[in-house]
Structures are given as structure tokens and as C-alpha cells.
């Protein structure tokens, strides 16, 4: 029983960060109907930003989210304004090519600057944990989860309660009608891509004390984010939150009870199984 609880809790702690990655992707998709295949690479940029300010300025990774977030927000807003905006009405495959291309440019530029060496960011607490009722809880993962929870909470508040947040949701639900409300949908797109990138960047910062940092790390996370978003229902923020937690727990349980090398396999089997019965995802709307 302890082993079970232990793995569920570790799964939830990791799943919270997965959720953050998924929420970013789903907001971008919701507002622009563009699947951002550079999402993992934005997360990678977040990791490198964190690593840089840690190794050069000695700023703690958890503190550095206040730098990583805004930096990635601006970068994402720039990408949207300069590139993505031009393909909003293009064919889906062209949009995919563009975001994949942007991702490749990002990862290869980082490789050029910092080589493809694996970096580790060792903090005093990187491997420390404490015990609670026989369950060991990793400190960096717990702090990461708490920050994630706070950010997710703030994001929900923003989307549900503020005029700008509601305008982002309105734009996602009906772009033309949003324009007729006096909403500048172009500005909302820039904002949405900025927020999505910032969330990916912050997730990168939060996992950097516990993951290897290297230029190609993004591809794993792009795939994972995609699975989370499709599982939860494309465009649904609550769906992505759930999806992230489910994937985190599934990975953790299958690593313990099956084999840690097979955890991804279990995730994909679960994913395909769910899509078989509910193609629109957990909270997705069936297409009319």
C-alpha cells in the first residue's frame, strides 16, 4: 500500500508540471487552432535560461521562474507576431511545418551556442527528500508542484474572471464573434502564444533541478504535451490539467509495477485506448 501511495504521490508531483506544459499548448491551440510543435523547444529554452542564470548569477531555479516566465513570454509573443500570424489561415500542414521548423532552429541554435553536452543543475536540494507517514517526498518536486499549482490557479482566475482572460476564451470559441465585441483578436493571439510559451518556459525552469538539460530535450516534451492535450480534449484547459496529472500518475505507477523502461508504452496504450472510445478526449467537444 505504501508503495502504491508513494508512486501515486510522485506521479501527481510530476503530473502537475506536465499539466503546466499541456495547458500552454492547449491555450495556443484553442485560440489559434495551430498545433505548436515547438512547444518542447520553448520548454528547453526555459531550461537553458534557468541554467544560465543559475550558473552565471547563482539565482535559484525556483526563484528564476520570475525571469524565465517573462523572457519566454516575450519570445513567444515575438514568434507569434513575426511568424505564426502569417499562417493562421494556411493549411494545417503548413502551420505544422512552420512550428517544427521554428523548433529545429531553436534547438540547433542552442546546440551551436552551448554544444550538445548534457548539463545538470545541481542545487543543495536536488536530491533531498523528506518522509511523511512512511512516504518519501522529493523536495524539489514538491516545491515545483506548489509553484505549478499557484501558477495554474492564477491562470484559471485570469481566464475566468478578468476581461482580458475572458476575451481570450471568447476568441477561442468564436473568432469572428469576438471581433464583433471589439476584441482585438490579433492581440489576443499574441497574448495567448506568449502565455503558452511562458508556461512551457516555467515548466522547464521547474524541472531543471531534476532533469538533464540538453538541446534536444524538447522533443520528448512536445510529444508528451501533445498526448496530454489530446487526452484531455483539444483546447480544454481543465482537460489539459487532468491529462497532465493522469499521465504523471500512469507513468509513475507503471514504472513501479511493470518496468520503468515501459512507462511510456503504458501511457501510449492508455492514450490510444481512450481515443478509441472517446475520440474527442476526456473533456473535448465532438466536432459538429
Amino acid at each position: 500500500m505504501t508503495v502504491f501511495l508513494q508512486s501515486v504521490i510522485s506521479g501527481i508531483l510530476v503530473g502537475g508540471i506536465y499539466a503546466l506544459i499541456g495547458i500552454g499548448l492547449t491555450i495556443i491551440f484553442g485560440v489559434m487552432r495551430v498545433i505548436n510543435f515547438a512547444h518542447g523547444d520553448l520548454l528547453m529554452l526555459g531550461m537553458y535560461t534557468t541554467w544560465l542564470v543559475f550558473s552565471r548569477l547563482g539565482i535559484d531555479p525556483f526563484v528564476s521562474v520570475v525571469i524565465t516566465g517573462p523572457v519566454l513570454f516575450l519570445w513567444g509573443a515575438f514568434l507569434q507576431k513575426t511568424f505564426i500570424n502569417r499562417v493562421l489561415n494556411a493549411l494545417p500542414q503548413n502551420q505544422i511545418l512552420l512550428t517544427i521548423g521554428l523548433g529545429l532552429i531553436m534547438s540547433n541554435s542552442i546546440m551551436l551556442m552551448f554544444t550538445s553536452d548534457y548539463r545538470i543543475l545541481t542545487t543543495t536540494y536536488s536530491s533531498s527528500s523528506f518522509s511523511l507517514g512512511g512516504i518519501s517526498i522529493s523536495e524539489p518536486l514538491l516545491v515545483g508542484f506548489l509553484i505549478t499549482a499557484a501558477i495554474t490557479g492564477a491562470l484559471y482566475w485570469f481566464l475566468l474572471r478578468t476581461d482580458t482572460g475572458q476575451a481570450i476564451r471568447a476568441t477561442a470559441q468564436d473568432r469572428d464573434a469576438a471581433q464583433l465585441m471589439g476584441i482585438n483578436v490579433q492581440a489576443m493571439s499574441v497574448l495567448a502564444f506568449g502565455i503558452g510559451s511562458a508556461l512551457a518556459g516555467v515548466a522547464g525552469a521547474l524541472i531543471s533541478p531534476t532533469y538533464y538539460i540538453f538541446p534536444q530535450v524538447g522533443s520528448t516534451f512536445t510529444l508528451k504535451a501533445f498526448v496530454i492535450v489530446v487526452l484531455g480534449g483539444m483546447g480544454s484547459v481543465i482537460g489539459a490539467t487532468l491529462g497532465g496529472l493522469i499521465i504523471g500518475v500512469t507513468e509513475s505507477l507503471s514504472a513501479v509495477y511493470i518496468a520503468s523502461g515501459l512507462k511510456e508504452l503504458v501511457v501510449f496504450v492508455l492514450f490510444l485506448g481512450l481515443l478509441l472510445f472517446k475520440p474527442s478526449g476526456l473533456l473535448g467537444k465532438t466536432r459538429a
Binding site: Q166, D174, M181, G182
Partner: peptide, 22 residues
């Protein structure tokens, strides 16, 4: 607009609030 085009996943109050976004 034609065919109403209200925001389907927003409440009545939220839809009205969007009407006064300006």
C-alpha cells in the same frame, strides 16, 4: 451576427460581459 454566434462555453453573464469588452 447571423446565427447568434454567442460564446457557447460561456455563461449568460460572461457573454454579456464580453458585450462590454470595449
Amino acid at each position: 451576427p447571423e446565427a447568434r454566434r454567442i460564446f457557447p462555453e460561456m455563461t449568460v453573464t460572461e457573454n454579456l460581459r464580453m458585450g462590454s469588452f470595449v
